[in-house]
Design a protein around this nucleic acid. Structure first.
Lengths: 147, 147
DNA sequence: TTCTAAATTAATAATCATTATTAATAAATA
DNA sequence: TATTTATTAATAATGATTATTAATTTAGAA
C-alpha cells in the first residue's frame, strides 16, 4: 500500500527527472495537495500555506500548479463554478460532486474504454482520453434537506 | 423527425409557459443557438447578432442565456478554456472535443445509468445526473498532424 | 385607450480568477 | 568565484462574467 510519504517522494523524483528545481514553496504545495483530500483551489492552497510562507505570492501558487500539471503530477478540474480545482494524480479515478456543498468524492470504475472506442467509431476522432463526473447530494446534505 | 423550426416553436412555448416574455433579442438568441451546431460562447452569439441588433448589450446575451438555462432550454458547457459554451437541449447526448481546434461533435451512447447506480452505491450520494466528455483529435486535425 | 406596475434592455461599472511583466533573489554550473 | 539560468514576489493587466441603474418596453388594470 502506497502512503502519502511515498507519493511525495515519487513526485519530487518526477520533478528532479524533469529538470524542475525543488523549492521550499513547491515542496509545500505538493505536500498540501497530497495530504489534503479536498481537491483545493489555488487560493485555498495559498491561504493554507500563508502562515508558513508569509511572503509567497498567489502567482507562485498558480505558476507551480501549472508546472506540476505540465509534468503530469496534478490534474486541473474545471466545473461550472468560478475557480479551478487541483487534484494530485495517483491512480485513475472519477469524481462525485455534491451540488449543495461542493464536496468532491473519489470513486473508481473500470472499463469505460468501450465508450472511447464507440466515440471513435462514430466520429472518426482519434481519442486520447475522457472525462466523467457524477453529480448529486452527499449524505450530509441529503440529510439536511429532509429536516 | 423534428426539425429546427419545431425546436424553436417548442422553445418559445416553454418560455411562454414559464412566464418569460419573448423579446426580439431572446427570439434571435434562441434561433441562433438552435441553427448553429457549434456550441457557441456568449461572445460568439453576441457577434453573430451584432448586425441585426446593433444596440444589443453583451450583458443581455448573458442574462438571457441564464434565463434559458433556468427553464431548461440550454446547458452551459464548461471546459478548461476561458469561456463557457452553450448547448441547446434536445435529446441526451455527449460531446467529443477536438484538442487541437476545439470543435465539438455530438454523439449518443445508451445506458450509463449503471455508473450512476454504482457511484451512488459506493458513495452514499443521491445521484442526479452525470457528465461525460471524450477528448481527441478530429479527422481534419489528425490529418494535418501527419503532413 | 390610457395608466400603472413589472419586466427587460443597454450602458457601464465592478468583480474576480488567472496571466503577464519585471526586478530581485537564489541556485546551478562553468 | 563568476556567470548564467530559474524562480520568486509584487504588481499590473486581461478578460469573462455579474451587478447596477436608468431608460424603454410590455402586460394588464381601469
Amino acid at each position: 500500500m502506497t502512503v502519502s510519504a511515498d507519493y511525495l517522494k515519487d513526485a519530487l523524483e518526477t520533478l528532479k527527472d524533469s529538470g524542475v528545481r525543488i523549492t521550499p514553496q513547491r515542496h509545500a504545495i505538493l505536500e498540501y495537495l497530497i495530504s489534503s483530500m479536498t481537491h483545493p483551489t489555488a487560493d485555498e492552497i495559498y491561504k493554507a500555506l500563508e502562515s508558513r510562507f508569509p511572503n509567497m505570492s498567489v502567482a507562485t501558487v498558480y505558476n507551480n500548479l501549472r508546472v506540476f500539471r505540465e509534468v503530469g503530477l496534478v490534474k486541473e478540474l474545471t466545473y461550472g463554478d468560478a475557480s479551478s480545482r487541483f487534484d494530485f494524480v495517483t491512480h485513475e479515478h472519477y469524481h462525485i460532486i455534491c451540488e449543495d456543498c461542493g464536496k468532491i468524492t473519489d470513486f473508481q470504475y473500470p472499463g469505460l474504454d468501450e465508450i472511447e472506442q464507440f466515440a471513435s467509431h462514430v466520429s472518426g476522432y482519434q481519442i486520447s482520453h475522457h472525462r466523467l463526473e457524477v453529480y448529486g447530494l452527499c449524505p450530509e446534505c441529503a440529510n439536511n434537506k429532509v429536516n
